[in-house]
Nucleic acid binder design. Sequence first.
DNA 1: GAGTGGTCTAGACCACTGT
DNA 2: CAGTGGTCTAGACCACTCC
Lengths: 264, 264
Amino acid sequence: MAAKYERIADDLRQQIRSQQLAPGKQVPAQTVLAERYRVSLPTVQQALSVLQAEGLIDAVHGIGTYVRAPRQRIRRTTDRYQWEKARALLPLDERSQTGSTEYDTGLTMDDLDFHTEYRTCDASADLARAFGVEQGTKLLHRIYRTFIHGEGPAVSLIDSYIVYEVAAANPDLLDAGNEPWPGGTNHQLRTIGIEIDRIVDEITARPPQGDESELLGFGSGVAILVLRKKSIDTDGHVVEISDVIMPGDRTIMIYQTQLDRWPS
Amino acid sequence: MAAKYERIADDLRQQIRSQQLAPGKQVPAQTVLAERYRVSLPTVQQALSVLQAEGLIDAVHGIGTYVRAPRQRIRRTTDRYQWEKARALLPLDERSQTGSTEYDTGLTMDDLDFHTEYRTCDASADLARAFGVEQGTKLLHRIYRTFIHGEGPAVSLIDSYIVYEVAAANPDLLDAGNEPWPGGTNHQLRTIGIEIDRIVDEITARPPQGDESELLGFGSGVAILVLRKKSIDTDGHVVEISDVIMPGDRTIMIYQTQLDRWPS
DNA sequence: GAGTGGTCTAGACCACTGT
DNA sequence: CAGTGGTCTAGACCACTCC
């Protein structure tokens, strides 16, 4: 009863799971599959597109179709938040050494290319609610894109927001030319008398849209992890919000929760 | 240079973003689109399949294609862990009232159907590493499926693992007939002298595979959030591991990190 | 029955890659 | 060049839903 392309996809999926089709150039050519399963070419392609959407295979134009190998994941722990905050107190030369991307990836700044852009925008409904300000309030919008080497796929896409009038207390914070700022956002905020007390992470997932797949360097068939990180100062105000987009197959986010002990 | 189906998809995507195509039965029929864009039917279908994979539209056989409305998200905070642990100390009648799914969804137990199954399995490489035991060690594998009402899509899929010899200290823990266990896993572990001290959550995301979309009740075009939750006892041993699968468009996971204060 | 989306075909042509 | 995947067509037939 199932459609032909589904039976073909099921068959290939099972072969992949059972390692009968191991990572590498293993998937036969579309024409071969069409003959083997006695179907037309578009039907084979439909079956393959299913597996591609599931992230099991990767088709390379002119070369062939490969079983995708599991990716090494970048571990993202909350230790980084404490590390970032402590770094803001270090002397300038130590602050300048590394940033948080290097902290994540273990790569040095020489391996990484940074693209930074500052803009202003009006607070959307959800950002306004999160900051506790009127919708339409002017925000400083900082856009960070990190690449490995000279080009290739982005490691992370970060969009950071701060209420403009807050940041404007130090005009240096409005100039993208000062990036990368030694000591990061924690140090920037320190120059205007703000100390981050706690961080709230909100995590969702969704499929990539439009050109995000290209930009992040994964074909279709990879989900996107979306992290909205809210930094709250010692007065309980949300002072900064970062939207971080990460590839779901290369990222693992780790959180630890300490529980109260039972009375003995 | 772009393919026809891409231009059509881009056009429709923009119409959706600009609310020109609002949530509801708004997307014209495939035949209409084929005429409008002067392309063949399969080309229109290819364009629509792109948008469906992105989660922007939902096609209903025999009815039409709709712009998908944003979903109400279930908030999953770490408060639940403390709540679950404290619940294990309550008297039986209070423990029996609600479980953690109700805690998440706000629904009562009357609205929910539970399916529970106990099995045993051999520890895979990653489970063995996490538990700190030999690969192949016998594990108790508990399978939980929660549904709303009498049928329909599953709310969550949970696969829980405990080292078999540990659980066997209380034979009641090996019998699925005792589910739902009043007070949950924390109380179960308490009967064998184990207290959970902290919980480590590891979060990734991936596209749904095979029949997962059907089982969880979302069409294609929804990413899956995968949570591996490790419960660690007061001796530092990992005593239980839960793999939780949640729909990315209906879930938001929230974590709070408290930072050390700067010295004044 | 009319309208919708879902599947499938046979074949064409193009674009990309490596030899 | 040969082999690969990517796009597109014109048309057929089916399955589902509503009237």
